[in-house]
Every structure is written in structure tokens, then in C-alpha cells.
Simulated assay, not measured.
Amino acid sequence: MGVFRTIENFVFGMDCLGCGRSSEALDPWLCPDCVERLKRESLGMSFPAPDVFCLYPMDSLTRRLIHSLKYKSIPGMARFLVRHSSAMPGGVIHQTMESFPRPFFFVPVPLHRARYRERGYNQAEMIARALAELYGGRVCRWLRRRTFRVSQTKLSRDQREMNVAGAFEGALPAELPPRGTVFVVDDVFTTGATTFSCLGALGKGFPLPVKVFTLLYDQPVTASADYAADMQAFYGAF
């Protein structure tokens, strides 16, 4: 076992974040079986809406991983999830991305400063960096968060829309690039309330094509029930 793997196991433990079983073959957080499951889920992903691209469906495995990214101080999980998805060369999303005008500009959904102080980083920006690294694009902080009310997790569609109404504003450069494609990046797409609010903050006359890119898609019909059940299973396993 190499020195870096030894350090990772010391910091994060030797239990798989996916299934909870102990393994000496973590890569670096998942056992081989969970890595293969993650890849299969990405291959079978369907997009929730036109111009919205999600790398994985929300289920017990991906929910645990996104929880680790957001709440367990593992920012490297963003790059790990991107690198095991169909965003990689040969994957469906990668092939679709090749048809969009370049350069690519990845705009992370901004995190409220209170949340940033808690986590020490913005998970959406970690995802944007991983995508920019993969596609040779740029991370652009073209949005600002004006307000933060409550977490979106357990809200209905209408409640989500009200919760983020007016929450964002544009922070655009004095001169926008003349060409390219903009991707608003977030961790989870459920109803689209957050990302669509961000699109509105860019302005109706925004001159570049804009799309949405997230790690996970959580179908809103079962989001609350699945979240409660999986969180109970998550805390019971660790």
C-alpha cells in the first residue's frame, strides 16, 4: 500500500462510504463494487429537461457521496464523481458537450457566506472546477447570493421557487466573452428552482447560450421520503 493511500485511510477510515463495509481496496472512498455501481448508474442516467445535464440519479449511494461532499469536508468528492461519470471521454454527456460552442464557462451557484463559513468551501465551485479541468474551461463567479432563507431539501416545488425568488443577482464582467457556452453548476437538480433563479439573475438579454450542469438529479415526487429514509440508513450504517 502506497504512502498516499495510507494517509487517505488514516484520515477517512477504511470503510466504504457507499456500502459501509471495511475494505483495503478503497479508491479512495469507495470499494471496487461501489465504484462499478457508480459507473453503471452514470451510464443509465437520463436528463430531466432540455439543456439540463445531470451525471447521476439520486439514490442511496449517490446521496451518501453528495452528503460527504457537502457535510463531511471531502471537497475532492466533486472531482471523483465527475471522473467516474459519462462526462469522461466516450460518455454520453461528453459526446453532447462536444457539440456546444467553446470556450466553456462554468458558473457555480453561489453559497451564502454563513454556509461558506460552516463548510470552508462551496461544493458547487468544486464541481465547476472539476468540469473546467476536464473540458479545458473556466470557472467564473458571475453570480452573487443576496439572501438565504432555509434549505431547499424538504420543500415542495412551489416552496422552492418562493425560497429562492430574488436570492441571486448577476456579477458579470464589464465585457462578456464574444462566444462560448455558459453552464450554471450546482450539486443537485430537483425542481430546477435554484438553477432557474440563477439563469434569471444573468438577465434576459444574456448573449451566450446557457445550460445547467449538476452532479445529481433527484426526482421531486419522492425526494422528501427518499431523503428521510436514506439519511436514517446512512447514520445507522456509520
Rank of each mutant, 00 (worst) to 15 (best):
A201C: 13
N122F: 09
D187F: 01
M77H: 05
E118I: 05
L176C: 08
A229I: 08
V35Q: 14
Q152V: 00
K211P: 03
L30M: 11
V184Q: 06
T214P: 02
I74E: 11
V3D: 00
N9T: 11
F238V: 03
Q232W: 05
G44S: 14
F47V: 01
R119L: 06
R129T: 09
H67K: 01
T222P: 01
V210G: 05
M58N: 03
K39W: 13
G76I: 00
S73R: 07
A124S: 15
L111T: 11
F213P: 06
L176H: 05
F10V: 14
S197N: 10
Y116H: 14
V188H: 03
S99F: 00
Y121Q: 05
F4N: 11
R21N: 03
A165P: 00
P89S: 07
A237I: 14
C16P: 11
M162D: 09
P108G: 01
P50F: 00
T214A: 04
E41N: 13
I7N: 05
S197L: 06
G76Y: 00
S99K: 15
S22D: 06
F189A: 03
L69P: 04
D226R: 15
E8H: 12
A225N: 14
P101C: 03
Y116D: 13
V11K: 13
Q152T: 06
L134P: 12
F234V: 02
I66F: 06
S68P: 04
G200D: 12
L17G: 07
Q159K: 14
M231T: 05
C198T: 06
E98W: 01
D33H: 13
M77V: 14
V3P: 03
N9R: 15
P110K: 02
P178T: 14
V82S: 08
F168M: 10
D15T: 14
S156Y: 00
A124T: 04
M58C: 05
V210S: 07
R144A: 04
R64E: 05
A233N: 04
V221S: 13
K39Y: 09
A193P: 11
V221H: 09
V182S: 14
T194Y: 02
L26E: 06
W142M: 04
S60F: 01
T62V: 06
R117S: 13
L55W: 02
F4P: 02
I127R: 01
G13A: 11
P108V: 01
